[in-house]
Amino acid sequence: MNRSKKDRILDAAEQLFSERGFDGVSMRNVADTAEVGLGLVTYHFTTKDVLFEDVVTRRAEVLNSERRKLLSELDNPSLEELLEAFFEPYRRFIASGSKGWRAYARLHAILTQDSRWTDLAARSFGAVALEMVERIMMAEPAISRGEAVRGYVHVIGIMVSVFAETGLIDRFSDGAISSRDVATSISPMVRFGAAGIRALAISETAASAPLVTLNS
């Protein structure tokens, strides 16, 4: 399939941003990698910020759509079922062998580590995030909204670090576990995430319980 020049620019930018971060990439770098003129890059994307946002939102829309589809099929799910539905579309896209989705996963990790991209992350993933928080509260009634938000943010941190394929788990496991094997990463993430969210609910309940004193 022939890719449009605009798509080639987005693909090139995605790969470069995932490898070098936002500050390490110039519009000229993108033009050279996409094998197009710099003028064409700036015609489609007036600034590097605009280009970065379009790179992020392009796949975010696809990911959000698949997540909403799986979430809509759940009826009174457990935390484990909820998290599996949330992780699975991302895993499937990465496991498809697409170089672009693997680059996007690394870029997504960068996005979550820098506060200057908080607004962009909120615009790109906020609607599904709010739905997840509501569903976490339904699955774990003892948890407050604040702790549900905290649990969701912790889950995101786990997800992006795993899907970014940093190789850390390969090194610490002496190669017994591969960070590229995203298929086997889902179950541990689900178990860890669900247990953590439940622990937040339990600790919050314990903290709010009245102290019991013994009369002398």
Rank of each mutant, 00 (worst) to 15 (best):
L16E: 11
F17C: 10
F17K: 09
E19Q: 13
G21H: 12
G21P: 08
G21N: 11
F22R: 01
V25G: 04
S26I: 15
S26H: 15
R28A: 09
N29S: 15
N29Y: 14
N29P: 09
T33N: 11
A34P: 11
E35M: 14
G37T: 09
L38G: 14
L38P: 08
L40Q: 13
L40W: 03
V41K: 03
H44N: 13
H44D: 10
T46G: 07
T46H: 10
T47P: 07
T47M: 08
D49R: 10
V50L: 14
V50R: 14
L51E: 03
E53D: 12
E53Y: 02
D54H: 05
D54E: 12
V55D: 02
V55W: 01
V56T: 06
R58M: 07
A60R: 07
E61G: 01
V62T: 06
N64Y: 01
N64H: 04
S65W: 00
S65I: 00
E66D: 07
R67C: 02
R68N: 02
R68E: 01
K69E: 13
L70I: 02
L71R: 05
S72H: 06
S72Q: 05
E73D: 05
L74V: 11
L74D: 03
P77T: 00
P77S: 01
P77R: 03
S78A: 13
S78G: 12
L79D: 09
E81M: 04
E81R: 11
E81P: 01
L82W: 03
L83I: 13
L83Y: 12
L83F: 13
L83R: 01
E84V: 00
E84F: 10
A85T: 02
F87G: 02
P89Y: 05
P89T: 08
R91M: 00
R92M: 08
F93E: 09
F93N: 09
F93L: 14
F93I: 04
A95Q: 12
S96W: 14
S98F: 12
G100R: 10
G100M: 13
W101F: 15
Y104Q: 08
A105G: 08
R106N: 02
L107K: 04
A109E: 06
I110D: 00
T112P: 00
Q113E: 15
Q113H: 13
Q113F: 02
D114F: 05
S115D: 11
R116V: 07
R116K: 13
R116H: 08
T118F: 11
D119P: 00
L120P: 04
L120C: 09
R123Y: 12
